[in-house]
Nucleic acid binder design. Structure first.
Length: 114
DNA sequence: CGATTGACGTACG
DNA sequence: TCGTACGCCAATC
């Protein structure tokens, strides 16, 4: 059996995403990089796909791609739900693109490194 | 059980 | 600067 210390990649993603403060967003690559796999960004996105089965549910709407685009909005109950939630938290979204993305960007490699 | 896909990102030409 | 190829790993076909 695997060491209890080793958590599944998906589980790590879920934990990090849950730590994202309100009104802040991060990117798949940032999380992947935080997990020591900068090229495993696809896994982060895939983990989000499975996040629907996770309890509590993961705030996947706070996770966007490197360009700040809501690429995964289509996977929500409604394609606009992601943007609505973000705006509800104070995040301005324009045409699926997060405004002030570099300002509200929450980098786990920095925030969790403290 | 093998091949393809996928909510991305980086590397290379 | 832009376009294409590859890597990552799990789920789905």
């Amino acid at each position: 059996m695997k060491s209890s210390n080793e958590i599944d990649f998906f589980l790590q993603v879920y934990q990090v995403v849950r730590l994202i403060p309100k009104g802040r967003v991060t990117s798949y690559g940032a999380i992947a990089k935080y997990l020591s796999s900068p090229k495993a960004s696809r896994m982060v996105g895939y983990a989000m796909n499975a996040s629907h089965s996770q309890k509590p549910k993961v705030p996947a709407h706070r996770v966007v791609n490197r360009d700040g685009l809501l690429t995964g909005k289509h996977h929500f109950s409604s394609p606009t739900e992601m943007q609505e939630k973000l705006e509800k938290e104070g995040v301005k979204v324009k045409k699926d693109q997060v405004q002030n993305f570099d300002k509200i960007f929450w980098d786990p490699t920095i925030e969790l490194a403290l």
